[in-house]
Amino acid sequence: MTFTIRKLSSDETPPMDLLLLADPNEEIVLSYLDRSTVYLMESEDLELIGVYLLLPTRPHTVEIVNIAVSEKFQGKGFGKKLLSHASETAKSEGFFTLEIGTGNSSIAQLGLYQKCGFSISGIDFGFFLRNYPEPIWENGIQCKDMIRLKQDFP
């Protein structure tokens, strides 16, 4: 399948339904959305496949604060392609480190991120308990801690 990845233009509305797949709290998504650059992955007939957001956090460091693939397209390698694009974009924009975080219960994502060159760099214990009003359950595990990963560029 042919696809393109492009920046969301200023006159377009971000795909909130897709962003909420990765982060179920709309208030939190809105808190970082305006400070982020939004990238859309679309099929050749302009069907939305996926999205990711890059947010500069410190000098020379940028974070993927949200990444999601439409349920219809999951399990087909598009997440890996989005991560690869994010890495290339971060490098080309002069960043030295790309970070990403996910829940302790996000088993598939933890595997994917490590397969794509990220290494675990820390744990923010109790992050989801402190920042989300409703408990999050995934894979039969309560999501409590934020697992932080990073990828450094030479």
Results as ranks from 00 to 15, higher is better:
residue 125 F to K: 15
residue 53 L to N: 05
residue 29 V to Y: 04
residue 65 V to Y: 01
residue 12 E to V: 11
residue 15 P to D: 06
residue 143 C to P: 06
residue 97 T to W: 05
residue 77 G to R: 08
residue 146 M to S: 12
residue 101 G to A: 06
residue 154 P to K: 08
residue 19 L to S: 04
residue 104 N to D: 09
residue 43 S to A: 14
residue 66 N to E: 05
residue 115 K to F: 04
residue 99 E to P: 07
residue 112 L to I: 11
residue 15 P to C: 03
residue 82 L to H: 08
residue 92 S to Y: 02
residue 127 F to R: 07
residue 53 L to I: 03
residue 129 L to I: 15
residue 63 E to S: 11
residue 141 I to L: 12
residue 13 T to V: 12
residue 149 L to S: 04
residue 80 K to E: 15
residue 19 L to A: 08
residue 103 G to D: 07
residue 53 L to S: 02
residue 15 P to H: 02
residue 136 I to D: 00
residue 16 M to F: 11
residue 150 K to R: 04
residue 116 C to N: 13
residue 4 T to R: 13
residue 14 P to R: 10
residue 23 D to C: 02
residue 130 R to F: 09
residue 97 T to V: 14
residue 9 S to C: 09
residue 154 P to M: 07
residue 28 I to K: 02
residue 25 N to K: 03
residue 112 L to T: 13
residue 104 N to H: 09
residue 60 H to W: 10
residue 105 S to M: 12
residue 28 I to W: 02
residue 20 L to W: 00
residue 67 I to H: 02
residue 50 G to D: 07
residue 5 I to M: 00
residue 120 I to G: 09
residue 80 K to T: 15
residue 114 Q to S: 10
residue 5 I to P: 00
residue 109 Q to W: 03
residue 42 E to M: 13
residue 52 Y to L: 01
residue 17 D to F: 10
residue 51 V to T: 10
residue 68 A to G: 13
residue 51 V to W: 01
residue 111 G to P: 08
residue 55 L to V: 08
residue 99 E to Y: 11
residue 60 H to Q: 14
residue 72 K to N: 13
residue 145 D to H: 09
residue 142 Q to C: 05
residue 50 G to E: 08
residue 139 N to R: 15
residue 99 E to I: 10
residue 19 L to D: 03
residue 81 K to T: 03
residue 80 K to F: 12
residue 132 Y to F: 10
residue 119 S to N: 15
residue 138 E to A: 07
